[in-house]
Design a protein around this nucleic acid. Structure first.
Length: 262
DNA sequence: ATGGTCGTAAGACGA
C-alpha cells in the first residue's frame, strides 16, 4: 500500500500536476497540504473521477489539508485537538480498514514559524508541535499502525539541508524547533525516509527563488513519522523528485512510503 | 542587489 504526502501549494493551480501524478504513481492514500482552498472550492469531481475519495479541511486563501484515498475512510477527524480557538486548517486524520485491522493516517501542515522574532508566529509553531506531541501520544496508546505524514516545516538534521549555515536562524532549523521534533520522535515514532536510506542530499522542497532547484539547494521538511506498528510494515520509501521538474511545479515533491498491511 | 518567485484572489500576505 502506497501512502504519500505532498504539499501542493494551491490545489487549483496544481490540478493538472496532481491528476498526472495520481495517474502515474497510483498511491492508495495521499495526504495533501496547502490546498489554499475552502472545502467547496476543492476540485473534487476531477479527483473522484480518478477513483479517489476526497476529504478536505480547507480554509480561505491559506493553509488547508486533505486526504485522498482509494478506500473510503471509516472515520475522519478535522483539526488538531488541544486548542478550540485555533482557526487554522492544518490537520486532518482518517481511519482506514486494512486486511488485519485499521490504520490511522494524518495529513499535517505544521506552522512555518518565521520570522522567529515575531511575537505570535514562532510561539504558535512551538505550541502546535507540543499539541501534536500530545495527540500523537494518545494515538500511540491505541497500538495501531499510525502514520503522521505532512509538511513539518522542520529540517531535522544538518544533512537535511544544502547548507546548515544558511538555515541557522530560520524557524525551520532553530535548536528549539529541532528539539521539539525530537521530543515527538522520542515517543517512539520513526522517520520513514531515514529508516530506509542513509543517502545524503535527500530533499523534498526547493524554493522557487534564486535557482534553488537548478542548484539542488533543497531542504527535507516533508516527513512520514511512523508508530512501531506501521514501521514494522514499511517496505520502502521514495522522494518523487522528478515532479519538481514538471511545468508549473509545487515547490515541494511527493514523499511516499510503501507498506505491506496484508 | 535591503531582492529574487509563487498562489490566492483582488491587494496584501504568507511562504
Amino acid at each position: 500500500m502506497k501512502i504519500a504526502t505532498w504539499n501542493i501549494n494551491g490545489v487549483k493551480a496544481r490540478i493538472d500536476n496532481l491528476r498526472q501524478w495520481l495517474t502515474d504513481s497510483q498511491p492508495e492514500i495521499v495526504c495533501l497540504q496547502e490546498i489554499k482552498s475552502v472545502d467547496e472550492g476543492f476540485p473534487r469531481l476531477e479527483i473522484e473521477a480518478l477513483g479517489y475519495h476526497v476529504e478536505t479541511h480547507g480554509q480561505k486563501g491559506f493553509n488547508g489539508v486533505a486526504l485522498l484515498s482509494k478506500i473510503r475512510p471509516d472515520e475522519i477527524l478535522r483539526g488538531l485537538p488541544g486548542d478550540d480557538g485555533d482557526e487554522q486548517s492544518r490537520y486532518i486524520e482518517g481511519v482506514f480498514s486494512v486486511p488485519r485491522g485499521a490504520i490511522r493516517v494524518a495529513s499535517i501542515y505544521l506552522p512555518n514559524g518565521n520570522p522567529p522574532e515575531d511575537p505570535v508566529k514562532y510561539p504558535y509553531k512551538l505550541s502546535w508541535m507540543e499539541r501534536l506531541r500530545q495527540h500523537a501520544r494518545n494515538c500511540l496508546l491505541l497500538e495501531e499502525p499510525l502514520i503522521l505524514a505532512g509538511d513539518y516545516n522542520v529540517i531535522p538534521e544538518p544533512h537535511d539541508c544544502f547548507d546548515p549555515a544558511v538555515w541557522a536562524t530560520d524557524a525551520l532549523f532553530l535548536p528549539e524547533t529541532r528539539a521539539a521534533f525530537r521530543r515527538l520522535e522520542n515517543l517512539g515514532l520513526v522517520d520513514a525516509v531515514r529508516a530506509t536510506t542513509d543517502a545524503t542530499k535527500l530533499y523534498s522542497f526547493w524554493d522557487y527563488q534564486a535557482g534553488a532547484w537548478q542548484k539542488n539547494n533543497g531542504i527535507r521538511i516533508d516527513h512520514l513519522l511512523l508508530a512501531p506498528e506501521a514501521a514494522d510494515r514499511l517496505k520502502a520509501t521514495a522522494i518523487e523528485k522528478h515532479v519538481r521538474a514538471w511545468e508549473k511545479p509545487s515547490d515541494h515533491v511527493p514523499v511516499v512510503g510503501l507498506f505491506d498491511f496484508n
